[in-house]
Design a binder for these strands. Structure first.
Lengths: 190, 190
DNA sequence: ACTGTATGCCAACATGCGTTGACCTCCGCC
DNA sequence: GGCGGAGGTCAACGCATGTTGGCATACAGT
């Protein structure tokens, strides 16, 4: 019997090596400073392989950011815990998946990255806010508020690495930010 | 009598033209994509002038981000209004001065920019938090929380330009974010 | 075992970058 | 009126980048 996880082509191991290296380089250096040559060297192959398998640097980047963010179903948890659960889940996401760091780093200077970020926002955070509110304009605003706090914490904690933000224990982040997004989602509009 | 604001050297007009063009380019494109050639063209002079007056691209960037952020004295306003006043002031700052956009755009991919951002944080937001709290570690955390919300809103509103965040009237931003930073600064630690 | 093709490397290309030094020009001063 | 220096342009350098085509090699199907 054949292993269903086995690579279908011999080149698949190289393909994913390139993708992994690219993920890290884009996440830590941003789009411009992550050079094809550096990515290729990290992956242990020739730069021309990148072009063969992904067409161009832009194509490689597209492959890197083409991921699905999955948020937990918030219907199953008590309404009062939504804020805390959400913050906890976002912290997991940021710490275990480099694609969000990539998006944040690149979205700030690259329009394609910004567009992808907006798409994630529209596909994940917006529907979430719509569970708590009637009019769609109100939901959009609340989603934007949640995004501002979540991305802001990610920025100072993981990207800019402000000491106090980076050192804060996870539980404290949840305790402080949880009520904030809870209010953004469920409080009466001011 | 001589005008005290008159340029002391004939080249001062060119110097500031370069600086103005650099501010805009760095703010909108980030460090890597803001080329010396493009800045020079915007300023209407030759690229070599940039080198003559600022030594290098790095030197020009240093000159651009070498600014003082001034926050209002919060001693004079009622304690309960601190959050709202602060948010209002930050919105003014972001809308009237491109240097913060520059810092945010560059700080995400450039270590010098990130360092400058941390310095602004330590020099401006941290002392502010120290007015409300006794231990310096607590103050640092509260300052980081305020920074996360303020920078997060700047990110989604001015840089990533999420529709709902960019369109939100200024008064609504103050009404939503004011209580948040108010709580970060003055509420009992959880 | 033979052959075609997928896989990979190497060398080179064109381009745009930051940066440099030689040259020109015009203002202010003796 | 001539002169020295500051202000400015021009062309070029060296380098790193993304990208390309040609060539070797090793695998898979017959």
């Amino acid at each position: 019997m054949t292993d269903p996880d086995a690579p279908r082509r011999r080149s698949d191991v190289t393909r994913t090596a390139i993708l992994d290296a690219a993920r890290e380089r884009f996440a830590s250096d941003g789009y411009e400073r992550a050079t094809v040559r550096a990515i290729a060297q990290d992956a242990g192959i020739d730069p021309s392989m990148v072009m063969r398998y992904y067409g161009s640097k832009e194509g490689l980047f597209s492959a890197v950011i083409d991921v699905e963010l999955v948020l937990p179903d918030l219907g199953a948890i008590p309404v009062d815990d939504v804020g805390a659960v959400l913050i906890g889940h976002f912290l997991d996401l940021w710490e275990n998946d480099s694609v969000l760091q990539t998006l944040l780093r690149v979205g700030v200077t690259n329009e394609a990255g910004a567009a992808r970020m907006r798409a994630v926002f529209a596909g994940q955070i917006l529907p979430l806010a719509e569970q708590f509110v009637v009019t769609s304009q109100d939901a959009a605003r609340r989603a934007a508020l949640v995004a501002s706090q979540v991305l802001g914490m990610a920025l100072v904690r993981y990207v800019l690495r402000f000491g106090p933000a980076a050192d804060m224990p996870r539980a404290d982040v949840v305790a402080w930010l949880g009520p904030t997004v809870q209010r953004y989602l469920t409080a009466k509009a001011p």
